[in-house]
Design a binder for these strands. Sequence first.
DNA 1: GTTCATTTGTTCGTATGTATC
DNA 2: CGATACATACGAACAAATGAA
Lengths: 265, 265
Amino acid sequence: MLDPEKRLTLWRQIADRLAEEVTAGRFGDGRLPTEPQLAARFGVNRHTIRRAIGVLADQGLITVEQGLGTFVARHLEYVLGRRPRFDADLRSQGREPGRCVLSVATIEADPATARDLRLNRSAPVLQIEMIAYADGVAVSYGIHSFPARRFAALPNAFADTNSITAALVRCGVTDHTREVTRLLTRLPSEREARYLEQALSRPVLQAEAINADLANVRIQRSLVVFAGDRVQFRLAGGSTGETIGRPGSGAQPANRRPSPAIIGG
Amino acid sequence: MLDPEKRLTLWRQIADRLAEEVTAGRFGDGRLPTEPQLAARFGVNRHTIRRAIGVLADQGLITVEQGLGTFVARHLEYVLGRRPRFDADLRSQGREPGRCVLSVATIEADPATARDLRLNRSAPVLQIEMIAYADGVAVSYGIHSFPARRFAALPNAFADTNSITAALVRCGVTDHTREVTRLLTRLPSEREARYLEQALSRPVLQAEAINADLANVRIQRSLVVFAGDRVQFRLAGGSTGETIGRPGSGAQPANRRPSPAIIGG
DNA sequence: GTTCATTTGTTCGTATGTATC
DNA sequence: CGATACATACGAACAAATGAA
């Protein structure tokens, strides 16, 4: 099974082989064999398996959970195109989106929001704070800001539809596009980690996005942090929307987390 | 200086004020006053300052380093457009790009590379491993793979020009575009942390990119990890290449790191 | 290597205002 | 009205990290 001529180290060969199998969709339930099982299968010591597994875990292809097992990393993949369509992305991956609205309030614009939305300082801003879920697992926590004067009807529309996109449509914004997005990574604050149900030591992806209506007027500023262990982004370069990479197979370590109070879903 | 009518809490007012000053380019040397100094300036307790600073650090606007001080976060901003132009991005931000080539080798394709470049298994692949610097500070470590048969002349061209883009031009690829990119965050491996001269506990941004030539033939697969504390990405949405956000002022905690052996620069 | 000054990080304690029951 | 809980703000002291002498 392994190349005996040793042109490659054993752990490298095993890592390649496992990576192949993971991306090919073997381990359909999302669970890899235990380390002793793999050691037996490849006829090597468990240390060798651990080295191979370590490489793949580093690459983000699999995740290892002490006491539980090794699992195919099933990152949600958000496509960053011209339009923000997170719910559609989720559904296309067979996940059920949900959200939990933490607050809806009209406040004075903070300086950054005023600048990004091109408002006067202290102009009123409608602010929606919410957590997004996929299959009951938290994936993002974000604050979405809108010019309150223009979108006075948005709170009610949002309460009805429970969707920002749908609520915007009700307010006359039939379409909106991504104006600019900044992406960075950092460690979460205590509050963010709590909302995302993740460890403080695990990184988050922060996206700061500005959306505009068809007339190129800025209507939304979003500051969203995504759970780094559960989300990745894909940027389509050309016109082809080809899917590459992880097949998003079976089930994760299972839903150990108690489903929080999810409003929509 | 602060609003006495207390419509907002002190720490919120101070956070807003500091954010404004940071984005306005005050603190031109990139260093904020010490916490006691700020406490004296605003006439509040150091705790109140710390709370305000904590908010801004959470937002990624500033970075706090124990024993050193508080600094304006000066992320390198890479624009993710149709063409990968990292060096040009760097120069436009007044940074001097450099690189350190760790290895240039022709090897058998690993499964992921073969798939992404649409090669047969075990087809020869030219692999360049290198670290990129900006002003002598490591910002990324990456492995770049090319079909070896087509790009037999690339190693020499790369040795001459020390630039992948320039070397590709010499090989007849006058232009190339980003086909697809996947972005995710994770913690670095021990080796990556060493190359990037960063702590193991600080996250990295991983970009997996596939580039194609003008005939849409895939010619390059890159797996690059960026130092999360020093890099962020910007996605231009529309046609306007407007610059928003941090002004990228003065100097970071200073170049504490000894400049490693940098080849080009 | 040791010492020292500087700076942030942490943990006590205390007091006050505000919302809720 | 009181009782309780919570966020805000201040004061003091010590711990930990860093850089330089």
